[in-house]
Design a protein around this nucleic acid. Sequence first.
DNA 1: AAGTGGACCTGCTAGC
DNA 2: TGCTAGCAGGTCCACT
Length: 271
Amino acid sequence: MPELPEVEVTRLSFAERIRGAEVTGVRVGKPLRWPLGCEADALISQRVGTVSRRGKYLWIALDRGGLLLHLGMSGSLAFSDRNGAPGAHDHFDLVTSRGTLRLTDPRRFGAVVWSPSLEAGQAAKLLARLGVEPFDAVFDGAHLHRALRRRRVSIKQALLGGDIVVGAGNIYACEALFAAAIDPRTRSDRISRVRAAGLVDAIRTTLARAVEAGGSTLRDFRDAHGAAGAFQRHAAVYGRAGLPCPICSTAIRRIVQHARSTFYCPRCQRR
DNA sequence: AAGTGGACCTGCTAGC
DNA sequence: TGCTAGCAGGTCCACT
């Protein structure tokens, strides 16, 4: 479910409220992608520090180490001082003096992992292969062009890989390629430097607009207050197969690339 | 090093 | 109404 905008919207919705809270309890439900990596009780009585984001991961700093969270395909977080009994898909509760942070994740591709720091243990291992942040100054046309020169996979797959630039998943990769007028099947090493620069702008603009809109709510995305996002109403191509392109009215096409759906306008987007 | 395919798990919808 | 196939926002790992 969650790409960078949804993860960032989630972070913004609870980071300040949970900061400074004391952990008073931990409940672990069904197994997630990886084990917690520590005794749940070891978290009790620690103070929560800042909540930061790296790619689609959240890092919740504690007195000793912190928790690295990933929402997988179907995860969402709720932070409330009046949580009811856990439901069938509520697999992790961090109970604090300010309220309970609850992870709901039907498919359980998500994860909550304790690590001694971002630079050590499981967190370091998981973050090691991530590409640059899209809003980092080092991500520019030259940087992207240099990285793409070494790849022969399609530009769509290169963006989804997350090892060049993080944050754009299936929705926003489609939207950014539309905004940059690039055919998603184009081989990465055939993207000119000028077009790479245009793609950098498109990725940034697309992700920033989505954060402003509160993310996309295709099925069930909610921020930690329970608010839905609105970006899907702005989607030009994603999920719009057969509907008219907002620029030229040509029917949007759906194809499958590496087992993922890709949506694009066959007229506006060129190789 | 880069590319490919399979794996993880559950829920929903369209079609018969 | 009930069954099945196909699809879903991610990404790790083993293998070539």
